[in-house]
Computed example of a mutant assay.
Amino acid sequence: MKSLEYRETAFGFFKFAFQDDSDEIVKSSCVAAHVLASQNLKLLAQDVVYWVIRRVGVDRRREVVEFMWKRHAEFESDFSVLDTLMRGFLKVEMSCEAMEIVGRMREVGLRPSSSAITILFKLLLRVGDHGSVWKLLRGMIHQGPRPCNHNFNAVILGFCRLGHVKVGESLLYVMQKFKCQPDVYAYNILINAYCTRGQTVDALGWMHFMINNGCAPSLVTFGTVINAFLQSGKYD
């Protein structure tokens, strides 16, 4: 895999080679992931773990976690192996298992990656696991990493897409308590949500609100509001 020039080619080779999901082959694949991670080839390590999880399925996912954890100290740090496992579960869309990895990180005193948490938020909202969304957000507030704009924007977008615009509004206010100043993307999410619902007056109100709070609208902001007024026949 290391000798191949492109990540996609290396991953394709591994998928071709991984034809047997016996315990011995799974263990060997986990060691391969460790070796790749130890040589700063984290993305390839994540590809290997993702494919192994996908092949063995839900029933054997705990085996993979234990295989990876058992010998990881010889090759990589606690955070490195758990982050690889978390991203593997995220890629195969096993949200409950990804949440378990977050829990294991907390147990050993680690903070999950903010970027991985953003992906997890999106997945949890897509599958409708709102309880885990709030649990994950509470965990970030109390144990870190501190929620950032990307985290809040992902959650606001997810709830707005589900039609829970008021929840999105509340989160926009809440994020300011954690030193996250709403950016143009956060406002655009809410404005678009109101426009989609035909509530153009509310959308325009939010545009004025963002301007008054020192956030300049983008071309997307104006385009969204103008299009909504045209769709509703309010040409004036």
Rank of each mutant, 00 (worst) to 15 (best):
N151M: 08
P145V: 03
G163V: 06
T118S: 14
H142D: 12
F159L: 10
P147V: 05
C160E: 12
H142Y: 14
P145N: 07
D129S: 14
K122D: 12
I141C: 04
A116R: 02
H142K: 12
Q176G: 15
N153E: 01
V133G: 01
C160L: 00
D129G: 00
L120R: 13
K166Y: 02
L172N: 04
L123G: 04
S132N: 04
R111C: 09
T118R: 13
L123T: 06
C148I: 13
V133P: 00
I141M: 14
D129A: 14
L172I: 12
R161M: 09
L124R: 05
Q143A: 15
G139Y: 02
S115Q: 15
D129T: 12
G144S: 06
V133H: 01
G144V: 08
Q176H: 09
F152S: 08
L172D: 04
I156G: 05
R161D: 09
L110R: 15
L171V: 11
V174R: 10
H130S: 06
H142E: 13
V167W: 10
R161C: 00
I156V: 15
S113Y: 07
F152E: 04
L171S: 11
Q176C: 11
Q143D: 14
G168V: 13
C160G: 05
R126L: 10
L124W: 10
K122A: 13
E169N: 05
